[in-house]
Write a protein that binds this DNA or RNA. Sequence first.
DNA 1: GTCAATAGTTTGTCCTGACATTAGGATGTT
DNA 2: AACATCCTAATGTCAGGACAAACTATTGAC
Lengths: 246, 246
Amino acid sequence: MANQLSLSIDRSSPVPLYHQVVQGIEAAIHSGILEPGSRLDNEIDLAAQLNLSRPTMRKAMDELVRAGLLVRKRGVGTQVVSSQVRRPLELSSLYDDLSNNGKKPTTEVLSFSHVEADALTLAALQLPTGSKVYHFTRLRKVGGKPLALMENWVRDDITSMDEAQLANEGLYAILRRGGVNFRLASQRIGAMIANDYQAPLLETEAGSALVTMERTAVDDTGRMVETGHHVYRADSYSFEMTLVQR
Amino acid sequence: MANQLSLSIDRSSPVPLYHQVVQGIEAAIHSGILEPGSRLDNEIDLAAQLNLSRPTMRKAMDELVRAGLLVRKRGVGTQVVSSQVRRPLELSSLYDDLSNNGKKPTTEVLSFSHVEADALTLAALQLPTGSKVYHFTRLRKVGGKPLALMENWVRDDITSMDEAQLANEGLYAILRRGGVNFRLASQRIGAMIANDYQAPLLETEAGSALVTMERTAVDDTGRMVETGHHVYRADSYSFEMTLVQR
DNA sequence: GTCAATAGTTTGTCCTGACATTAGGATGTT
DNA sequence: AACATCCTAATGTCAGGACAAACTATTGAC
């Protein structure tokens, strides 16, 4: 019960107090100080130990429960869940995922154009008839091995872009620099068989398995910013996620 | 600006006040009373209109922001985002998904045994050596058409089960009745090519595309309850989800 | 006319306090 | 010894207030 997690709270920091607590407990769980299954002190005591109010402590624990790291039971207490489970799928791009894992992805721009959007794209991005979009296809490799073939459509009233930029960095990095704050994305994951166009580009045989993903991303003003259709080599990529019951 | 969403709050209801607000606003958005892009009154006024405190109002809006229905901006206000986007992927089972959509799924139990778990299963469910588990494979059809081939391992210290039960209802329904409160699940989605065992069962050709899913579910006490490996016909099933930036 | 300082609005954070609800153990009775 | 009842501990809900930070729009100075 005496689970003295020695967190240090810096009240002069611009980081909100509850978030400092989240980070502290998160670190304690990952480093093994808090073992899976162990019970935490109750909210009141924890708050007192850190000189925080109970609502602040609760807000921190709320986040950890939502993230799937803690489990609360009324009348019983709060426990650390198995640390085996992974973090929820974040709103990130393939490029970010790879970079964060220490990989060095390269991008080859196969086609690039600035054209009037077709009906399907207009609907996906909720744009008025006649709007123009950037349309391009890219091939992403890691360690020289092709991983993903990506076709995207991006509205052109946010930031301008060209082939050279796309070859050097991820699409989301470009858009973020253009002032886009992504808020949510809806995506659909499925499977298909590699066709004669995809197979040679991904250096696999026609008929091999591909993971498909269609995504549309929305920014904080509600604008549909980007929609894309991606395919991944099934032997090199899969989607991992943690679902939390609310 | 004057967005009189006429919600009725029932203070005698056992449903928490903030949740009544969530439901009310959710309904208003879905029914079109609150249009996408429209601004809500500020928190203080809204709370006053409903005779609630600001923290309660905020808690409700927090949930809606997390669900991706609202967008808040400091100094500006709160807006309804596009209602096009779907709800976040819930922790539900295929059986629930299908039933909720008005389909009538049928289940064929291909094999069923109560055996000592192998090393891989022991690791996945974090069980001590020598533990026994239920191991079974099921074929799920909708409208007579095969959709999914599912292999599962379930710990046996929760509830007993047999072939007949599995044929009549979903696995999650059985476990819930056995007292399991699911909290989170980690899953991995990928793709593969149908092999000679899978193809005839799913009434497709060997070499056609399948969506694969591996899932391990955890209950509110942190126990790993169930792990499974499922494959779906790619032409009939895909995973839809909404990712929310936090 | 253009730019910078300023005031006002709105959400973000944090506090104290109170009561309700639930789970589980302790107690007492049969 | 078995059972029902009470009590305690912990989380869940709700209130009201205070100040901080960020964005907008207006105002003022040059």
